[in-house]
Design a protein around this nucleic acid. Structure first.
Lengths: 193, 193
DNA sequence: TAAATGATAGAACGATCTTTCTCTTTTTGC
DNA sequence: GCAAAAAGAGAAAGATCGTTCTATCATTTA
């Protein structure tokens, strides 16, 4: 075989495609970005693209997979940084705020994707639902470990607040949303001050 | 002139176009809906459409204008129903919850539109910004009238919560979001229990 | 070195997109 | 009833969409 591979084992062309698609899909929207733009930015030809992916739809799913993996990775790194559940909660809330402020200034990739995919049974919407379920469940486990007696309710509030922070950060500017988010999130998580 | 007009004075063809476009744009997304679908649903020909609108973009703005007018109308009706600022706040929060539960089950038209229009200077994004500014300002005035000493902060929290309710209601189901929204909104507005 | 396979290059498919055009029919105002 | 203007009907432009194809080149493995 003549497939160029990365140290991680996957093809370099495929990784460039996913990276370019992720960047473009997030910054400009999914339906607004054509295959030509993606392969152009990736420096790859159409034939190469269609050898790695059955179609554009699969590139969308790969994009959401990358976003999902990034957030899960951030949670794992936070979990390795401390053993104290309370402190972990603080780190998570700080991390979410930092993420909205620096990385996700165009809103939430999953919320934005869902806006373009009305069919709840589509693969994209299923991926969105799975991500949200994971996020909610992880928060609930964290809150339970921190001794929160109403972890399920508090987790729901934190999901709510993160959605709002993503949307508000994009449309109103993060500096306008940040104080309301941090205050409400810390209270919802049962943290001091 | 042979323009069929409604009692309100505007052309009936134009109203049908805006109604069909609003329905389709909201339910399926903007880029996903073509002009053919819109004129087909409206029972109007292409020529008629292009005689009333310079292009599709203007139909998008008309759609957001309708949504904006609907919400402003709901606020006005609530204002006519009572003179007590506290009770008015209750009505508004109830109305927002009811709106998400029954009318806006596909998320917020403005948030969804913004997801498809990354350029902050575009007419669509300007319309979104104006709507949000009006909403925030109206809430702040309401809270001030109700005697809230931190009306600006509270208004920001209510905007945050409404965004979250719209998104969460769409992606997680309203029954899952409702308790968190009502509780948090009443607390943010300074209402009892 | 030879066969195999992926990547490159580029044309081309059919479908759909927004927009424009012509022609005919219908409706309205006078 | 007549002239004016809008709506209906449909073709067609030109662009772009996602996708497929046929070549040729480069690289790897046997």
């Amino acid at each position: 075989m003549a497939t160029r591979t990365t140290p991680a084992g996957t093809s370099v062309a495929r990784e460039k495609l996913v990276a370019s698609a992720s960047d473009l899909f997030y910054r400009e929207g999914i339906h607004a970005v054509g295959v030509d733009r993606i392969i152009g930015e990736a420096g790859v030809t159409r034939a190469t693209f269609y050898r790695h992916f059955p179609g554009k739809e699969d590139l969308v799913e790969a994009y959401l997979g990358v976003e999902d993996a990034n957030i899960r990775g951030a949670f794992e790194r936070a979990g390795e940084a401390t053993d104290d559940p309370q402190q972990l909660l603080e780190l998570v809330i700080e991390g979410l705020a930092d993420d909205v402020a620096r990385l996700h200034t165009r809103g939430c990739p999953f919320i934005n994707a869902a806006a373009e995919y009305p069919d709840a049974d589509s693969d994209v919407r299923v991926a969105v639902g799975q991500h949200r379920d994971w996020f909610r469940g992880t928060l609930e486990a964290l809150l339970t470990a921190a001794g929160n007696p109403d972890a399920e309710i508090a987790a729901g509030q934190l999901v709510l607040l993160r959605d709002a922070a993503m949307v508000g950060g994009y449309l109103d500017g993060w500096e306008r949303v940040r104080p309301a988010f941090v205050t409400a999130a810390r209270r919802a998580a049962g943290l001091a001050g």
